[in-house]
């Protein structure tokens, strides 16, 4: 996975190389954390119907004007999720509990960017896959923004069977490990153009 996003999260400016930014001393620890942690990716495609602000994912319905507007024209959606292993997150909590904030900050940056990378990886794969069959992905959207209520996490949780991977959902719809990210990716059909 690319390292630059990790360094940017730790404050490095985009134009600076690692050694110039004085981050060289931390590079080895970052590399160790990248090597030792793993990320989980799960996704499944569902057909999508939109009517007004109502969103229907193969029988699961909820209201969100934001989703309806952003996903207008999409006939399907990829329900996707990525997370870190519980033991990796436990290690992060351990650093914090022990007061070793420096390690915690480095590991936190690695885990956060790894999860984002996992979703990017899936999107990239889908882009090629969908392109071959006359479809294309749009921009992904996570619940908890606008009127795409955080409550919809329960749908992601159930559909992606996240419990099997040691992920829990609180009664306030917070996924734990807290690095767990879910998203909906719209899938559009290309308009037909018969030559």
């Amino acid at each position: 996975m690319p390292r630059q996003p990790i360094y940017r999260r730790l404050g490095q400016r985009q134009t600076q190389a690692d050694h110039e930014a004085g981050m060289g001393a931390y590079a080895s620890r970052i590399e160790r954390f990248v090597a030792e942690t793993q990320v989980l990716m799960v996704y499944v495609e569902k057909s999508l119907r939109l009517q007004g602000a109502e969103v229907d994912l193969e029988g699961y319905r909820f209201s969100s004007r934001m989703v309806a507007e952003r996903f207008a024209g999409a006939g399907a959606a990829l329900v996707m999720g990525a997370s870190v292993r519980p033991e990796d997150f436990g290690r992060l909590r351990g650093f914090q509990d022990e007061g070793d904030l420096q390690q915690a900050v480095l590991l936190d940056a690695v885990l956060s960017e790894k999860v984002d990378f996992a979703l990017d990886f899936v999107e990239q794969e889908m882009r090629v896959e969908l392109g071959r069959s006359g479809r294309r992905p749009g921009r992904r959207l996570s619940c908890g923004y606008g009127d795409f209520a955080l409550e919809q996490q329960k749908y992601f949780y159930a559909t992606l069977e996240l419990a099997r991977h040691g992920i829990t959902l609180s009664d306030r719809f917070i996924l734990s490990p807290e690095k767990t990210v879910t998203a909906l990716l719209p899938i559009y059909q290309e308009k037909e153009d018969h030559a």
Partner: peptide, 16 residues
């Protein structure tokens, strides 16, 4: 091949 099959009528979502 893929994009040309689409132009020739391959339905969206079909396996080429």
């Amino acid at each position: 091949t893929g994009t040309m099959l689409q132009k020739s009528g391959m339905p969206a979502g079909a396996s080429p």
